[in-house]
Each structure stands twice: as C-alpha cells, then as structure tokens.
Design a protein around this nucleic acid. Sequence first.
DNA 1: CCTACCGATCGGTAGG
DNA 2: CCTACCGATCGGTAGG
Lengths: 206, 206
Amino acid sequence: MSPRRSVADTLETRQRILDRSLAIASAEGLEGLTIGRLAAELGMSKAGLLGHFGTKETLQLAVVDQAAAVFQREVPGRVKQAPSGLPHLRAVCEAWVSYLEREVLPGGCFFTAATTEFDGRSGRVRDALAGMNALWRRDLRIHIRRAVSFGELPQDTDVDQLIYEIVGIMLALNHFLQLEHDSAAPRRARRALERLLGDGRGGIGA
Amino acid sequence: MSPRRSVADTLETRQRILDRSLAIASAEGLEGLTIGRLAAELGMSKAGLLGHFGTKETLQLAVVDQAAAVFQREVPGRVKQAPSGLPHLRAVCEAWVSYLEREVLPGGCFFTAATTEFDGRSGRVRDALAGMNALWRRDLRIHIRRAVSFGELPQDTDVDQLIYEIVGIMLALNHFLQLEHDSAAPRRARRALERLLGDGRGGIGA
DNA sequence: CCTACCGATCGGTAGG
DNA sequence: CCTACCGATCGGTAGG
C-alpha cells in the first residue's frame, strides 16, 4: 500500500535541493542558480527536480524562504535569551556580525547578493526579498524602540536613522569581507556599532 | 583612399556600444549584459559588435573602465575647486551622495552591483573591480589624511575605520534607494556623514 | 560591418 | 522520479 517514495522521503529530497540551491545562489546569485547545473550537482534529472517546484521562479521563492530560515536560526535565534531592550539590540547586531564573519553561507550574505541582483527588476522574487528586508527592519525597530522606552537610548533617537546606519555597517562588512577578504572588517563593524550603541551616550538624537 | 569607416566613426561606434552596455549592466548586471541583446538594442549584428572587443570578457572590462570614467566625472570631477582637507573630503562625499541620488545610471551604483555580482568569482573582471575600489579608497584616504594633518579631524583618527563607515553609508544609500525607493535615504546618508565629518568634533578617534 | 552557422546550455514539457 | 525532447538563447567563429 505504501508508495515507493514516502512523504518523508519527498520532503527530504526537497530539503536537499533547497540546501544546495541556497549554497549555489548565495555564491553565484539567484539567476546563476540554473536547473541544469543544480540537477547535475544533485545527481538527478532536471525534470525530477522541477517536479518539486514547477518553475524556476517557484524554486527561487523557496530559496528566499530557506535563506530567511537560516538567517532567523543564526541571528535572532541565537540571542533569544538576551535581556529585552539595548542588550537585546546589541546581541542581535553581534550575532549578525558573527554570522557574516563565520561565512555561514558561501559568498557571504545571501540577502545582500540577491537584493542587489533583483532590486532593478519586478516580480514575485523581488517582492519577496523586499518583504524579508522589511520584516527584519521591523524586528530591529522593535528592539530600538524598547531600548528608547527603557531609557537605554536617548529619547530623541531617530529610529530609522539608526536602522539606516546599522544596515550600512553590515553592508560594508559584507563588502570588505567578500571583495577584499579584509580580516579587519569585523573589528571595524563592531567598533562602528559600539559608537552607535555602546553605552547609551553615542545614540542618534533628532 | 579613405576607408568606408574612418577611425573617428569606429571610435564613435565603440563609444555607443559602451554607453549602452553600461546602462544595461548597471540595471541588470555584467552577466545580464548579453551580446545578442546588446546587438539587438544597437541595431547591429553580434559579429559586428564583437569585432570591437573580441570577447565578452573584454567588453566587460571596457564597461568597468567606462563606469569608472563616469564616476570620476560625476564625483571627484565635480569638486576639484573645493579647498584641500576636510572641505574637499566633505565635498567628495556630498558629490557621491548626489551621484546616487540623481540616479546617473539606471539601477544605481554600477560598482556596487558589479562588485556584489563578481566578489565570489575569480578572473580579470573581478580583479578590475577590486582595483577600482582600491583606487577610490586611496583617494578617500588621501583626503582624510590631509584633513588630519590640517587639524580638521582628530590626530588619532582611525583612517581605515572612517573609510569603512563612509563606504557603509554609501552602500546603505544605494540599498534603500534601489530596493525601497526610500526618498528619505539621501537625507539619512547626509546626516550620518555630518556626524562623522560635520565639525571636526565627531571624528573617529583610536 | 554583414550573413550564416557552430556546439552548449537555458527553462520547461510530454509521457511514462 | 526517469528519458527524450522542444524552441530560444548563449558566446563565439568562418568567411566575406
């Protein structure tokens, strides 16, 4: 009565495809992820592979979700125990730096690469990437607001300005690590963050 | 005696190819710049087009040079009259923000897009991009050092830290403009720069 | 600068 | 999950 492939096997295959896809896409881009190459690396046929996703765009959307899951696990997932407010914000930023420093994914931050690749286009992949970025900024905003309400950051802190500057620090970290292989970059990122969030005196007033 | 195509005509055609190539590449990436599409948009044959460059890689390298020429004209070229030292550094950064704000190239900063696209690869294009980035950082370094020696920035300024943070501000500007179409981003960039370079008191000490 | 052509690869489908 | 196949496009070349 049981099918030759159980549901569990199917899900496992799907996960294998996604893991390999994410590795390829973070190193070579979401367009560089081609069906033929992916099938060859996985030792399966293109048709068998496409059976799991239907089209390349659906695969790309699934890869975006997978990347978000990895980021969620490696950054906010590592600091759940940090006290609310400024300590949590600092812990999240440190986990973010560490995530980039450890090169969890080959080619650095998947979202930086994919966002830069798709920001000039339109369609569902671009929208999904923009949505993930917006969700993450919302997380940051929550932590910043808490830190302000707890008096750990100045009352006149410009929240969006602070988010802007944190994002810039992370983009620069990815840039100097990936293009220059600059091992001093994580230190520079931490120092810049320290200046923004260090002791509550360096905050960004209005 | 004169050839059907003069040297001037040939150079003009070459420039037409480069201008169009740069527009395509900054919007769609250096790999998205395909010979067939470029030839179609220019109303010429692929063979005629390749006659000017030989291979796609040579074309890509020429596009990198062209992008550098545009950046040179639009950023340092616009502030030659600014007084040496901190005023020059601030003028260069303002021209850089303005360059991104005006969207001189469709799709934003060509170098940001191309660098992210090629940072995980090897080869001449990647090396050319890394070289251009290094040259530009050298320019910034010169201006920062002058500002320090003139006493306009603190003596203990960490020059590479300052470059890191300026680059982050510009990467974030490109990110928020291109992905979020956030019209407040230039203001945030200027504010962040003001905090770094504003009045000589916000400098980055060691 | 052109036409005509090459092998390779693209995303995807038919049929099983 | 497979084989076999599709039309389209890729970078590039031969020959003029």
